[in-house]
């Protein structure tokens, strides 16, 4: 009796220590986002208070209204949507078949290009492509950003799809070939439907990394063609000095990604660790 009581006590202690460790580990993340939220709903007077105020007496919802109603916000939101959407769509269109082809040819060595692309600093694409876009007269439109975002999205899609198609079973495809299907038909009607989970992973990661991209935008975007991260950066440096609306804008920009991360956590973890373990 006393013996089992002691074991229980030790188990409880261990459990408590574990929960404490979990709390310590996740608290920097939770506190940061709580503070971000707090900054975004406070009036200037509360944001400048010392000691800092976590929950204000009056909530400044107007910070959000200010951002959403500012005449350029909808333009920048649409720009972000168009750049990320088109760059991801194009990447899936060329990257999924490429991943399939490379996996079936067992030509994974061809993917070395993707690895080197992963290592290359983004700015070394920016200088030559900037000059090219200037020469083509494309600056001032969204096309330079859509095209250069392919540098981000295409390698992600190809890499993840190679890994995915390498693990899908060949038997069904062989059966389809025996039944007289062409390579294209095998891909379209056998391989592609099975690959949907892999495509989802590739799409989610491509969307997030394209949406978050900042460096390409600060060089290529003009006043009318800014994406949201660039617009937020410009708010810091030029237009806006009060913290409330700034924090509100920051939260609005990153909210879609945060929501996607929480809901598609399984896919993101799978994609990142697959890419990471193979990509190292």
């Amino acid at each position: 009796m006393t013996w089992s009581g002691r074991v229980n006590w030790r188990w409880l202690l261990k459990q408590a220590a574990l929960l404490f460790a979990v709390l310590v580990i996740v608290s920097p993340v939770i506190l940061f986002f709580v503070w971000m939220l707090s900054l975004s709903v406070k009036y200037e007077i509360d944001n400048a208070a010392y000691p800092p105020v976590l929950i204000p007496e009056r909530f400044a919802w107007k910070n959000y209204l200010d951002v959403l109603e500012s005449n350029r916000f909808s333009t920048y939101f649409l720009n972000s949507l168009l750049v990320t959407g088109t760059a991801t769509g194009l990447a899936l269109l060329v990257g999924v078949p490429a991943g399939y082809g490379i996996a079936r040819m067992k030509a994974a060595k061809a993917a070395v290009v993707i690895l080197v692309a992963r290592i290359t600093p983004g700015l070394s694409y920016l200088i030559p492509l900037f000059l090219l876009f200037q020469w083509l007269g494309l600056l001032g439109t969204l096309w330079p950003q859509i095209i250069i975002h392919l540098v981000v999205t295409v390698p992600i899609v190809i890499w993840i799809m190679i890994g995915y198609f390498e693990t899908t079973p060949l038997e069904l495809e062989e059966a389809a070939v025996i039944d007289g299907a062409s390579r294209w038909q095998v891909f379209r009607y056998v391989a592609l439907p099975i690959a949907k989970p892999g495509i989802a992973v590739a799409m989610i990661l491509a969307v997030i990394f394209s949406w978050n991209n900042f460096v390409f935008g600060i060089v290529l975007a003009g006043r009318e063609t800014r994406t949201l991260p660039v617009a937020v950066y410009n708010m810091i440096s030029f237009d806006q000095l009060s913290w409330g609306p700034l924090a509100a804008a920051a939260l609005i920009v990153t909210l879609p990604v945060l929501v996607l991360t929480v809901f598609a956590q399984r896919q993101i973890v799978a994609g990142l660790t697959a890419g990471a373990v193979k990509g190292g």
Binding site: V22, I25, V26, V29, I30, F32, F33, W35, M36, L39, I208, W211, N212, F214, L228, P229, V230, V232, Y233, I236, L246, A247, A250, L251, V253, T254, V257, L258, L260, T261, V262, Q265, I268, V269
Partner: peptide
């Protein structure tokens, strides 16, 4: 769920994070 929360910093938009 907590693992999902824990990976938020690396998925969040860097400029927004930097601002805060």
């Amino acid at each position: 769920f907590l693992r999902g929360v824990f990976i938020l910093p690396m998925m969040a938009t860097p400029v927004a994070i930097a601002l805060v």
